[in-house]
Design a protein around this nucleic acid. Structure first.
Lengths: 162, 162
DNA sequence: AGAAATCGGTTGCTGGTGCAACCATTATGC
DNA sequence: GCATAATGGTTGCACCAGCAACCGATTTCT
């Protein structure tokens, strides 16, 4: 370590990651919004319930890595629009079981292929090997971040970490 | 294309990218905020001016990929705190030339090593080759996004795209 | 030269998001 | 068994970001 490397933004991982993630997100959010009137948090909930049938809000927050208040509001909106159904759990009245309504499932089945098509479009130019490599690197960086700063993982919507 | 692949969130690039970028950003933002009292947009401006001496707000927006209103407010704050200096450009009175004050440069020189140290910490476990591969993939995906959805690049703070 | 379009930058407004406080319910400790 | 803590979820609040309207300065078109 002598003259300290210059730190150019273009070679700075957090910055590059953010720009790319934002651009991808915005492009995708446009599809959700224009075609289906749902936001990204709402989409994450629909996707999770599409995949798992029935989950609680807490499960969804953990799985889709969102703050519990974000989930709460997104669920409220989806429930109000008849996309998600809330059922009480007789065994534990604190929590609610969430599931897609038929209408919700319809949306999921319409959005999912579009989302995947979008992903394929983004991946054009990358070989299958390169895609695997990319996911592998993301996995490892993700794991690294969880060990570096475990407390700020939005997934654990608990106050324990505070 | 038959049964349509399942679409699991964990294998969905936009989602994975966003989670990783958010975690990395938050961890880094904590350093900026706690140690130096600056936000991410403010940091991007300081970093850009640290790298280039003198730029206009428009240049910074393009280079650091931020909306012009974000830049405007961040610059206002930095100028108010004596970190950035604004000088009129006699050749074009619309724009202002921005530069770090000595105090600003001091902050840059204190933050930059910390930011780089953080990056190194995140990269622990990745070989230099893998880092290169990662940046290469990000570059290509970035380029791909610009051609897929050129209008939503926050960099071109112009209204042309509207 | 004059009208109209463009450009750099600022600002009011709105929507979204995280935090923290809170509510009701369930688990724990003595 | 009862007080206390913890948990799932909701909500008020404050902050931040983007959009769009706007302002003054400059360029373009005729």
């Amino acid at each position: 370590m002598h003259g300290a490397e210059p730190l150019t933004l273009e070679r700075f991982l957090p910055y590059r990651l953010n720009v790319l993630a934002t651009t991808v997100s915005n492009a995708l959010a446009r599809i959700y919004a224009e075609r289906f009137g749902i936001t990204i948090p709402q989409w994450r909930i629909v996707a999770t319930l599409g995949q798992f049938e029935t989950r609680t809000a807490r499960d969804i927050a953990a799985h889709a890595v969102m703050h519990k208040s974000t989930v709460s509001r997104a669920v409220a909106s989806l429930a109000g629009r008849g996309i998600v159904e809330r059922r009480p759990n007789a065994d534990d009245m604190r929590e609610e079981l969430l599931a897609l309504t038929p209408k919700g499932r319809g949306i999921y089945e319409a959005v999912a292929p579009e989302a995947l098509a979008f992903e394929r479009a983004v991946f054009t130019g990358l070989s299958p090997d390169e895609r695997e490599t990319l996911f592998g690197l993301i996995d490892r960086l993700d794991a690294r971040m969880r060990s570096l700063a475990p407390d700020l993982d939005p997934a654990d919507a608990s106050e324990v970490s505070r």
